[in-house]
Write a protein that binds this DNA or RNA. Structure first.
Length: 476
RNA sequence: CGGGGCGUGGCGCAGCCUGGUAGCGCACCUGCUUUGGGAGCAGGGGGCCGGAGGUUCGAAUCCUCUCGCCCCGACCA
């Protein structure tokens, strides 16, 4: 057991907080609800950024940067949007010692400021599609915060695209959803459900919202990314129009989508254990930690050069670091690097040196294997990929174990109370049934699955005809 | 905003009820011995007890006010 970390089985919520603090991903700041992302956490974010940014650029998106401040009036132009965001906005009223003529809202999201510019830039169908993304911070004055999962200020990327037709916009929204799914599954090793949000859960101002949903170890849903088809709602509010191929003026079709530093919280919650973090190799800042073992100076002089040459050997093959500190014992280092979630540890001591091998230990299950030093370069990448895959498989198995189909409300209620998870049940489509379920069980509709199975049934609550199952869960 | 908890060396806490000028563990520094799952011994440095006011000969401790943080709920990526 790692010292100072609450066990998951004792108090999952405290385990999470302990882990984030102890592994030095983040720390509380002097500002309420705001956290400091420490180097360990930020390196993780940088790796996520790098991969996702590459995927977005590969699909034709470019990065840009828009202002932090938004004139207050902009927010009010789209009725639903202001209703959704105004209550959680921070507003600047003073600047340079004077009261401002127009208050400035610190962006909670950037649709309005970005689209005011789009309206200026777009004249013709030849200007479309416009595919921009920005990496930025946003501020939402949440009533209750939680490290990474919900903080007053957070980092994210927000994509904002403009299209000629409704169909193109819809294709874009689904393309992004698929990128998000791939990114989470292939890089973060987090299996996700994809689907559409109900009217109650959709983005303020959107026509339709799609999302990816992960399941944490305490069996709650974590919304990990959203992709919105904005239709022409914002185009009308910000006059984003263009002359189409027939020579007529037409409002543009827009999308917006984002993932945030919440993903870091997701990685912690989905993969972590009582020893600490477990980072998926593909995004782990350090993939392999080399730990030397010696009893005396003579052994140290033998081991250290060998360790250095192994590190050099792995250059370009894996992200490696070695911990040659003399003030800590090997046992201490084992625990410390496990806490930090480094996927693979390589131990090199006198016994290994004699055999010209090393001991590799997986963070996932502490399984050890001996690797001849000549094979390190070829074997390590294979081991890392294996850990990546096992991590995903384990998370997927957990999700499957905690997913079910339920057809009567009593079972549904007791399940949500005792052993929640993803519960697939029939829903008639009425907001009233959705909110009653929430009131009774705290569960909400996480997604309406993309693919129709064709299976019809009766709404779990009212019994009316349902066109298909939707996925309920208690959400973060 | 409602409920609960907490502010005492860097961190975690005890002391407060029954006032007498601060203690423990970890961390840190020095030295020696150690090092294959969180080493041992010895020595050492560091806090005026969230803030303000009051009671008292005397306040970390009692009273009043205040600030802040964390957790649980309603709002939410």
């Amino acid at each position: 057991m790692s010292k100072g970390i609450t066990k998951r089985s004792d108090d999952y919520s405290r385990w999470y907080t302990d882990l984030v603090l102890r592994s030095e991903l983040a720390d509380y700041s002097p500002v309420k609800g705001c956290m400091v992302i420490r180097p360990n956490g930020y390196a993780l974010w940088e790796n996520m950024q790098k991969e996702l940014d590459g995927m977005l650029k590969a699909t034709g998106h470019q990065n840009a940067y828009f202002p932090l401040f938004i004139p207050e009036s902009f927010l009010h132009r789209e009725k639903e949007h202001v209703k959704g965001f105004a209550p959680e906005c921070a507003v600047v009223t003073y600047g340079g010692g004077k009261e401002l003529e127009e208050k400035l809202v610190v962006r909670p999201t950037s649709e309005t400021i970005i689209y005011s510019m789009y309206s200026k830039w777009i004249q013709s169908y030849r200007d479309l599609p416009l595919l921009l993304n920005q990496w930025a911070n946003v501020v939402r004055w949440e009533k209750r915060t939680r490290l990474f999962l919900r903080t007053t200020e957070f980092l994210w990327q927000e994509g904002h695209t403009v299209h000629e037709t409704e169909q193109e916009a819809e294709e874009e929204v689904l393309r992004i959803l698929e990128i998000y799914r791939t990114f989470l599954e292939d890089y973060l090793a987090i299996p996700v459900l994809t689907g559409r949000k109900s009217e109650a859960e959709k983005f303020a101002g959107a026509l339709r919202t799609y999302s990816i949903e992960a399941l944490t170890q305490d069996r709650r849903a974590l919304q990990a990314g959203t992709s919105h088809n904005l239709g022409q709602n914002f185009a009308k509010a910000f006059n984003v129009n263009f002359q189409n191929r027939k020579g007529e003026m037409e409002f543009a079709w827009q999308t917006s989508w984002g993932v945030s530093t919440r993903l870091i919280g997701g990685v912690v919650m989905v993969h972590g254990d009582d020893q600490g973090l477990i980072l998926p190799p593909r995004i782990a800042p350090t993939q392999v930690i080399l730990i030397p073992i010696w009893k005396n100076d003579e052994e140290m002089r033998e081991i250290l050069p060998m360790l250095a040459s192994i590190q050099a050997d792995l250059k370009g093959v894996a992200r490696v670091a070695s911990d040659t500190r003399e003030e800590y014992s090997p046992g201490w280092k084992f625990n410390n690097w496990e806490l930090r979630g480094v996927p693979l540890r390589i131990e090199l001591g006198p016994r290994d040196a004699a055999k010209k091998s090393v001991m590799a230990v997986s963070r996932l299950d502490r399984k050890k294997c001996v690797i001849p030093q000549g094979e390190i370069r070829s074997r390590i990448p294979v081991l890392l990929e294996e850990i990546q895959k096992n991590l995903y498989d384990r998370a997927l198995a957990f999700r499957e174990e905690n997913s079910s189909e339920v057809d009567d409300y009593e079972t549904f209620r007791s399940l949500m109370a005792e052993q929640p998870g993803f519960v697939n049940a029939f829903w008639c489509g009425q907001a009233s049934c959705e909110s009653k379920v929430k009131e009774d069980t705290k569960a909400t509709i996480r997604v309406i699955p993309m693919k129709e199975t064709g299976e019809k049934g009766a709404c779990i609550l009212c019994g009316n005809r349902s066109e298909g199952r939707v996925t309920f869960a208690k959400a973060y």
